[in-house]
Simulated assay, not measured.
Amino acid sequence: MFLESNLKIRGELYIPIALHLLSKEDNIKSIKKVYSHRQALAQCKTFLLEKIPQAKLVEVESTAKAAELASKEKGAAAVASEIAALEYDLNILEKNIQETSLNYTRFLVLSKKDAENPTGNDKTSIIFSVKHTPGALFKALRPFALYDVNLTKLESRPIKNKPFKYIFFCDFEGHRKDKKIQKLLQELKEEVSYLHILGSYPKADMNVGEENE
């Protein structure tokens, strides 16, 4: 999306995710098939294998789609949210079946402008591609070590309609207006074939381990 849009990242949110086993059935022993998104199935794998080993696990595009399918099929269940249970009139057979309570999904706040003023506790997101030469990625990452900047995320994705070529998504601590970040980005620009700043914004706090007041 970011390759085809001028939108900027203005903020981020971490939302705790609770996953439940939903079905029209009343008994978990009746479940023969479980639908869900690939990631949700992975997060609940231990429960599913231990409690309903007979069930076939089927990946679909979203947990909402899983709930929709489960609502129409006898003996089917979905791994999805409580909202999905209400939307599709499903019974919650088991609650909170994810393997960890520290289960968060990150959401980005998009706008035509990013958060222009540094707060002192910021994050910057960029995308870049490297030259097709030996050591290209190493050279691209070297400025982060040189300026002692912490990378919080680095992942590669294939570029659409360009076989065997990849774009890198990168998050790191600091604001694009910080002096050392400006120097870092300038050196990075000299090492890569493409660089686009997605935005600088305040870092979100997941409040992990804190009790709700």
Rank of each mutant, 00 (worst) to 15 (best):
L3E: 11
L3W: 08
E4M: 10
N6E: 07
I9R: 10
I9S: 15
I9W: 09
G11D: 06
G11P: 00
E12G: 10
E12H: 01
Y14V: 05
P16F: 15
P16M: 01
A18N: 09
A18D: 13
H20P: 00
H20C: 02
H20S: 06
H20R: 01
H20V: 05
S23I: 02
K29Q: 04
K29V: 14
K29S: 09
S30W: 12
S30Q: 12
K33V: 15
K33E: 08
V34T: 01
Y35N: 09
S36N: 09
R38G: 04
R38C: 03
Q39H: 11
A40C: 15
A40T: 07
L41M: 10
A42M: 05
A42V: 05
Q43I: 05
T46D: 12
F47Q: 04
F47Y: 06
K51F: 14
V58C: 08
V58D: 06
V60S: 09
E61N: 03
S62G: 08
A66P: 07
A66T: 05
A66L: 05
E68H: 15
K72A: 06
E73G: 12
K74A: 10
K74N: 14
K74L: 10
G75A: 04
G75S: 03
A76Q: 08
A77C: 07
A78N: 04
A80K: 04
I83P: 05
L86G: 14
L86S: 05
E87G: 00
E87V: 07
Y88E: 00
N91S: 00
N91I: 00
I92K: 00
K95H: 04
T100K: 02
T105R: 14
T105I: 11
R106H: 15
F107I: 10
L108M: 01
D114F: 09
D114A: 14
N117C: 12
N117Y: 15
S125Q: 07
I126T: 10
V130D: 05
V130Q: 10
P134A: 11
L137W: 04
L137Y: 10
A140Y: 06
R142P: 13
P143R: 09
P143S: 06
A145M: 12
V149M: 13
V149N: 03
N150V: 02
L151K: 06
E155Q: 12
S156F: 03
S156H: 14
P158R: 02
P158Y: 00
K162W: 08
P163K: 12
P163T: 10
P163H: 01
F164P: 11
F164W: 06
Y166G: 09
D171F: 09
F172E: 02
F172C: 13
F172H: 08
G174K: 01
H175N: 01
R176S: 15
R176V: 13
D178L: 07
L184C: 14
L185M: 10
L185E: 03
L185P: 00
Q186L: 14
K189L: 06
V192G: 06
Y194Q: 01
L195V: 08
L198G: 03
L198M: 08
L198Q: 03
G199K: 06
S200P: 04
K203G: 04
D205L: 09
N207D: 11
V208Q: 14
E211C: 07
N212T: 15
